[in-house]
Design a protein around this nucleic acid. Structure first.
Lengths: 372, 372
DNA sequence: CCATCTTCTTTCGAAATCGAAGATAAAGCG
DNA sequence: CGCTTTATCTTCGATTTCGAAAGAAGATGG
């Protein structure tokens, strides 16, 4: 996509602009130039005019949308034992989303081939006829080197270390392939639901603890592991060795897996982090106490980050986020301990954008790759 | 300064470019457009051609510099008991720098009037004749709200809370006035000395502990307190109440002031943090142990931040940075505990840019304000 | 010392962009 | 209903920017 036109398309696709006038304001281009570009984009079938936006006192803007026939994106978000797969149109709107069981421990070859087959399946059954596939994005529950598209020493993905995921997919399709950490995708998707928040910290509390960081509106990747807080040392009386070999990592106390472990020791067998939430909802005191303690520990780690980066919002997602005591314990710790200037307008809240947030985030990032 | 020309001037002034060709590469403009703009800038006296840069195989580029007669910037960096004041030319090169005693506890009115008088003094004695003052920047040892230019609940600046510093100066001079936290200025100045490092964490270890954060090459301000790590809770056996009212803040254990307090209790009276460094250099075991412990505590806080933000470098400045055990203890803690991906190419080092770093940083930020 | 290569800078016609003014369209109001 | 206000969108000449090619100045290597 040629530069200037790509920028305009991105603004429309990203939901930032809906009319020519808005495009002019946001792109910095003159209104006349915008009109020209938009005319070309409509001519080439990427954009369509569709009705009008309601006015507030003047001529109604004509609503611009990305054409549904311009292309589809195939996106996937992998967990340890399941995968969410979806097709999006170029505006990032889901056409279809499915969750299917999938064992990541089967290794990269088997898993990625299965994903490719599933994409083909989805495209055959739900892909609109004649609309081309434009790009692929995969979210993985481990650190990803953004430059090479490789997984780097993941803790819960046996056999994946250093596997060239992007390259592997590139052999199947001649398309942009984006590989990213799942918490990062979640962060990008979630951030879209928090307009006005420029710096956002998105926590994914599931069987592991992940975190994505949006600084000034853009995902901060660092060296690929940015946002990793699971192996931070926490203050505790006892002493637990984490899977990473260090003592007292946050993950060893506050992750869904850790909570399930403690519950199992107490004779309460649970299979998934969401079962822990169910126990809390049922008022089982052991579970509630555990979750509250996990929230406190997470909150104490967050105090450091809140003072350091001064986010506008902390958003908690992942299956454990549905446990109310977790959120309130996080809030209590952060508001009690952080600097007033840092907490003055800080929002700490549960995810707004539902279970597809990571897929939406994948669409947003992928769009940038496709339109460049 | 009109947009495009301002950008070019900034690139020259900031030391990013020295020739028309470099300007073209960095600005993204066509070489021909650059030539036109540069001609105009030379015409208006802001830029001068001065000799040539050494070539690497072709025609020698003609060196461009900001004209020494284009203007001066007045900058100040205030500490608790002294102030560094300087005049810079528009390229950020110091014309004169002085350190003078100054009690910040005398309150904002007295201090700021004294600064204004000192600037007038410096301009009269060292300001080149006929060269106009173009802007003023002040660094203060406390949180500054970047929007309003006010100090916000500083812990060691009695009487300054909510004082409108920028406004106060605006009444004296009709010029851009920049007010910023001292650690932030230090970070900006220091980052210039670390080319290739996009994300840098600059620690100021003096009588307090400050920290400035450069993310992707730009200073991250957050709400004005970003980078504050002094009130992070540290793991410790004993229990100390910090001046902020919380228990076990980093500052209460590892700041120069805290170290001096402990030494005083042991009967070793010292007046300034640099005296502590002298004791360490003299091999006084109490001092060395204290400093090493301070380094360990700072390092443990940094582990969280390194995992979280994945910086390319951690630079330690401030008077305590000259104590070698401090740096090595920080290194030990970070390298031992952080994720391999985060520490793989991480540099942890002492300041490269000397005592004027904060003033240079003030010049860099101020230039942006002046050239916009 | 001369041909060749490299890099920097300028020239000049082509193309993109701007900006002011006008056309279009709707809301608010007496 | 017509007038005013507000806002969006288009037209068109003026300006800016681009890009290819040529010119300038030094490095390199026989």
């Amino acid at each position: 996509m040629r530069g200037a036109q790509g920028d305009l398309l991105r603004l429309i696709a990203g939901g930032h602009a809906e009319s020519r006038a808005e495009l002019a304001r946001l792109s910095g281009l003159a209104a006349s130039s915008v009109s020209l570009r938009v005319e070309e984009l409509i001519g080439s079938g990427l954009l369509v005019e569709e009705g009008s936006v309601s006015s507030r006192g003047g001529r109604r803007p004509r609503r611009l949308r990305v054409s549904p026939t311009a292309g589809v994106l195939a996106v996937a978000d992998l967990g340890g034992h399941h995968a969410r797969l979806g097709l999006l149109d170029l505006s990032g709107t889901p056409l279809v989303v499915e969750e299917r069981p999938c064992e990541i421990a089967l290794g990269p070859e088997a898993t990625l081939n299965w994903i490719a087959a599933s994409f083909d399946d989805l495209l055959a059954t739900h892909g609109p006829a004649g609309v081309p596939l434009r790009g692929i994005a995969i979210g993985l529950p481990g650190p990803v080197d953004p430059a090479s598209g490789r997984v780097v020493s993941p803790s819960r993905m046996p056999g994946w270390n250093n596997f060239p995921v992007a390259e592997h997919f590139g052999a199947h399709y001649d398309l942009p392939v984006l590989v990213e950490n799942d918490a990062n995708l979640l962060a990008v998707g979630e951030a879209r639901a928090w307009p006005g928040c420029e710096t956002v910290l998105v926590l994914k509390a599931g069987s592991g603890i992940g975190c994505g960081v949006i600084v000034n509106g853009v995902l901060h990747r660092g060296r690929g592991a940015a946002g990793d807080i699971s192996h931070v040392r926490v203050r505790s009386d006892s002493s637990v060795t984490c899977s990473c070999g260090h003592l007292d990592c946050l993950e060893a106390y506050a992750s869904g897996a850790a909570l399930m472990g403690v519950l199992a020791e107490q004779g309460i067998a649970v299979g998934r982090p969401s079962d822990v939430v169910a126990l809390v909802d049922d008022g089982i005191p052991e579970a509630t106490a555990l979750v509250r303690n996990a929230g406190r520990l997470i909150g104490e780690v967050l105090t450091v980050l809140v003072n350091f980066i001064n986010p506008d919002a902390i958003v908690v997602g992942g299956s454990l986020s549905k446990a109310e005591p977790l959120i309130s314990a996080i809030r209590a710790a952060v508001y009690e301990r952080c600097l007033p200037l840092a907490t003055r307008d800080l929002e700490i809240a549960v995810t707004r954008s539902g279970p597809d947030a990571a897929l939406l985030g994948a669409g947003i990032l992928l769009l940038d790759a496709v339109l460049s």
